[in-house]
Amino acid sequence: MIAEHGGLSVTQVQHVLRAYAVRSRERLTHVAHALVQRTLPPDTVLTTSS
């Protein structure tokens, strides 16, 4: 989802997701779940992690 939305590779997505989780003090699994449930917009992860 993030890879397609942001035009990133899978490796880049791993780094973006991890960085977002650390910055927001959330577990990585919670971030991933929120993305899948569409309660966290992909743009939020992409813009705050760059």
Rank of each mutant, 00 (worst) to 15 (best):
V45C: 04
Y20L: 04
L8K: 08
R18Q: 10
G7C: 06
V31S: 00
L46Y: 07
S24P: 01
V45L: 09
V16C: 01
E4T: 10
T47Y: 07
L28V: 07
T39S: 11
L17F: 03
L8C: 05
V13E: 07
Q37P: 00
T44H: 08
E26C: 09
P42A: 06
T44A: 13
S50Y: 11
P42F: 04
T39I: 05
H5Y: 15
L40G: 04
T11I: 12
E26A: 08
V16A: 02
V45W: 01
T39V: 09
V10Y: 13
V13S: 07
L8F: 15
A3T: 15
R38D: 12
V31E: 00
V13G: 01
A34D: 11
R27C: 02
R27F: 07
Y20S: 00
P41T: 06
S9W: 11
V10P: 02
L46N: 05
Q12R: 15
E4D: 12
R27K: 13
V16K: 00
G7N: 12
Q37E: 13
T47M: 08
H15G: 13
T44C: 09
R18L: 07
H15W: 09
L46V: 11
S24K: 15
S50N: 12
R38Y: 02
V22I: 15
I2N: 00
L35G: 05
V10G: 08
Y20N: 01
G7M: 06
V36F: 06
T11Q: 14
S50D: 12
S49H: 02
H30E: 08
Y20I: 02
S9F: 11
S49L: 03
L35I: 08
Q37K: 11
D43W: 07
A21T: 03
L17R: 05
E26M: 15
S50W: 09
G6R: 04
S9C: 10
T44D: 07
R38I: 01
T39D: 09
H30Y: 04
P42Y: 04
L8A: 01
P41F: 08
M1T: 14
P42T: 05
T44P: 00
H15T: 13
V16T: 05
V45A: 04
T39R: 13
R18Y: 05
T29N: 09
L35Q: 07
G7A: 04
H30N: 10
G6T: 12
E4G: 09
R27I: 03
G6E: 13
L40I: 11
L46A: 07
H30K: 07
V16S: 00
P42C: 06
L40N: 03
H15D: 15
L17P: 00
T44S: 10
A34T: 03
T11N: 14
T39E: 11
Q37V: 08
R23Q: 14
A34G: 09
G6W: 09
L40V: 11
L46E: 05
V10R: 15
